[in-house]
């Protein structure tokens, strides 16, 4: 153990002891595990049912705390954009087209077939999870991840060229920013109609129906598009780094 690491560990021990003591004091003041008093929970359930949203978590996320979710959306948008910028091809790097062939014929026939069969099914499941976010567990965030994952079956079961053909990159760019703008627009329309930002201004419909809960399914859809598009674009940059981009003159 070097002297520097030893010094660092002493510092760490003091920090861990301090934070640990604070945690013990803090947790001591919390209601004990399994306590049945949930003031906010009871009110959130009542507010959710009043807006005819069967999935209370979806109602909290996209109706009661929609403003916070917009902040979360913007964090996600900013982080994804920054990561995409960080991973772009630099001046002194080149794309090696030959490396597109990675994967390809190395994939078993059975795996290829399974991937081809499951790709449309997974995309459909993603859309289902997004569309039913106000009725059953799921929603825009979860469904968006399912969509992006489904898209990458093309890479796992095919090769990079197949994924590049399937992946409408410029459309996804527009979809990602458009979905964030749409979220904002839904909020502003609410402000125009009711006087408060992101208020639930769409007719609430019948409890348990696909068209219910007002703005919740709309915002779920927009978030689903944003998450799906951002994730595909992000993974695209990481895959480019791993497969294509090399320093000029460097061998593949």
């Amino acid at each position: 153990m070097t002297a520097r690491l030893a010094g660092r560990l002493v510092l760490l021990a003091a920090g861990v002891a301090g934070v640990g003591a604070l945690l013990v004091v803090g947790f001591g003041a919390l209601p004990s595990f399994g306590d049945v008093q949930h003031g906010y929970g009871v009110r959130a359930v009542a507010a959710s049912l009043a807006h005819r949203a069967a999935n209370t978590v979806g109602s909290v996320t996209f109706d009661q705390r929609a403003f916070d979710t917009m902040g979360e959306e913007l964090i996600m948008f900013a982080a994804a954009t920054s990561a995409v910028m960080l991973l772009r091809r630099m001046r002194d790097e080149e794309e090696q087209q030959a490396r597109h062939d990675y994967g390809g014929e190395d994939v078993f026939g059975a795996l290829r077939l399974t991937g081809a069969a499951f790709l449309p099914i997974t995309l459909l499941v993603g859309c289902y999870v997004i569309a039913h976010g106000h009725l059953s567990p799921g929603g825009g965030f979860q469904g968006g991840v399912v969509l992006a994952t489904g898209m990458h079956l093309a890479y796992l079961a095919g090769d990079y060229r197949v994924l590049e053909r399937l992946r409408p990159s410029s459309l996804l760019d527009i979809a990602e920013s458009g979905a964030v703008a749409g979220f904002l627009a839904v909020g502003l329309i609410g402000m125009g109609l009711t006087g408060s930002f992101l208020d639930n201004w769409v007719p609430l419909g019948t409890f348990g129906d696909l068209l219910s809960a007002g703005t919740v399914p709309i915002l779920n859809g927009l978030v689903g598009i944003e998450v799906g598009a951002a994730l595909v674009l992000l993974v695209a940059r990481f895959l480019d780094q791993a497969l294509l981009i090399r320093q000029e003159g460097e061998d593949a």
């Binding site: 929970g41 978590v57 109602s59 909290v60």
Partner: peptide
């Protein structure tokens, strides 16, 4: 409690 679940999602 759905509130903490929504926060966990965030």
């Amino acid at each position: 409690d759905p509130v903490v679940q929504a926060m966990t999602l965030t």
